[in-house]
Design a protein around this nucleic acid. Structure first.
Lengths: 226, 226
DNA sequence: CCGAATCCTTAAGGTTGATTAAAGGGTTTC
DNA sequence: GAAACCCTTTAATCAACCTTAAGGATTCGG
């Protein structure tokens, strides 16, 4: 978890840095707005702490620029006491929170945790892909082109296994091990049934991907070249 | 979050009222100074917008009176162009800010948020949105098209969670953690009951958004594509 | 402080959907 | 042609889920 501090007062910057490191964050510090923007744009940070009053380029300006580029990294603003409403209006430009100086380390840490939590809760998951298939495992569904169909858990695990093993042939034993567990009583026929279910759904979706049977060995995914 | 507007120009008062309501504030409007003072003294408002020039009793007088009674409610004064002396007097009597007419709705909203923030009030969240849904979490209600319905607190938190997690599936455990707390005794059935309540309300509103069950995993919001 | 309204919890019964076994037909191989 | 292997469909079962409603708890207005 990496945090960028943009703060011109050396003393405060150092104190912040220490607090954060003590809480197991990686920290980078820069002391003016231009550098701050450059660092922020690197997009390697999980959170930015921006002072509003800065030499070079103020915190609001940095905030506006990075939001303008579509970056959604959490930002907490540091405001001097008595900063005017216009400055505090930075929240309206997409800051997640602000902390007024002076502040306690506990307060700062709480706000950082809160900001990270808020952003962390919205994590889009990426899909497994093979050929024209897109498999979303967490919300078990299979997409081909725009068309999609739901999978039940076993179908999903089976397809996941086949995709992960790509061009290698997957044996019924391997499938049983993954879908039913090491010591299960499941029969080969159980596998055949689910292969059948999957083929039916691939067909329904009009996919060019086929599950090919290698007799006596297992199954493998293949693209239909017709 | 409830705001009182004391403004004698009907047209402006109505415009202000609309802007504020759109930003999820509850609004009352009165058109002269005497009524303004009565309403303000009820002490149910989170912020007052006072025109300085008013029939009956001017804004400064209202401000002096309520501050004399020890009320610390945030006050923003509306001043006509060129009323600088009044503005200064107003700030001396404990106004939090002033806005000179004409002003933009953005500017006004920024100043209101700033004033509320300074007083340590909790800001109303911007309405959460998903598809055709608009969730107002601070005054728990759900809007679809023009139609709206109230939510009770648990329904509101549940829907909020589902919206924040967007396309990810949310498990019953996660829901229990947020609605009942980490170590609660709440059962899965509790979640099911509230999911059911929410679905009924979505249905009543004629929303195209559905709460889809992912059997054995959790729930996810989806747009109905019919 | 009391009654009313709202909210929360629990429980019961109904519904749905995943899973499995079983049966019957097809295909490949020798 | 027969044995082994594979495919597909179906029906029963069971767990997960949905809905409703009643009553307890809490909050709110007077």
């Amino acid at each position: 978890m990496r945090i960028l501090i943009v703060e011109d007062e050396q003393h405060l910057a150092e104190a912040l840095s220490q607090i954060l490191r003590k809480n197991n964050y990686s920290v980078d510090v820069v002391h003016d707005g231009e550098d701050g923007l450059d660092y922020a744009l690197s997009d390697i940070y999980d959170l930015l702490l921006l002072d509003i009053m800065l030499p070079g380029r103020d915190g609001i300006s940095i905030l506006k620029t990075i939001r303008g580029k579509g970056m959604s990294v959490p930002v907490i603003l540091l405001t001097a006491k008595g900063e005017t409403p216009d400055k505090i209006a930075g929240l309206d430009y997409g800051a997640d929170d602000y902390v007024a100086k002076p502040f306690s380390s506990d307060e700062l840490m709480a706000r950082i945790r809160a900001a990270l939590r808020r952003k962390g809760e919205v994590m889009p998951e990426d899909a497994l892909k093979y050929g024209d298939l897109e498999l979303n495992a967490s919300n078990p569904k299979l997409t081909v082109g725009g068309k999609e169909i739901k999978l039940n858990p076993k179908e999903c695990e089976l397809l996941e296994l086949l995709i992960l093993r790509k061009q290698s042939v997957t044996s019924k034993e391997q499938i049983i091990e993954k879908l039913w567990g090491f010591d299960s009583e499941a029969e080969h026929n159980n596998v055949e049934v689910y292969i059948s279910f999957l083929r039916k759904k691939l067909n329904f979706l009009g996919s060019r991907t086929r599950i090919t049977t290698i007799r006596g060995i297992g199954y493998v995914l293949e693209e239909d070249k017709s």
